[in-house]
Amino acid sequence: MLRTVQLILPALIPSWNFFDVIAPSPRIEHQLLDHAGKPHGDWQAFRPRPDNISLLTMLRRLIWNPRWNESLFLVSCAERLSQDITPEHSEREILTRMKRDLQAETDAAQFRFRLVFIHREDETLTQEILYTSAPEPLA
């Protein structure tokens, strides 16, 4: 019951402080591993954004944009995980979606992910790794 109240209250009494500060921004990266846990290659961005998209695609995505909305949900999960808010749930949600994507792309035995947070220090963008998952089987 208490958890339900905690979930509902921010909707009933919203803060509306959108973009009040530009917080460090998470990127999810993955690395493929063999059966022994040895890396197959370097860390790679998970779902990298395209270099550019056409106006037509932008308009179409006004109506139908499931993959991007799911990616935004993963950003929320990454932020929660880094702040230790419902960490098991957030990790499970990220792993489930990464596994689904990677199973379609590779036959590697395992993978792991890490959360890289980008922020600005004066005029320089810097990166900080805040979380690395344990190896997860892909089979």
Partner: peptide, 10 residues
């Protein structure tokens, strides 16, 4: 510059 929101790199 660095948030997760812009839909394309350009």
């Amino acid at each position: 510059a660095f948030s997760a929101y812009p839909v394309a790199e350009n």
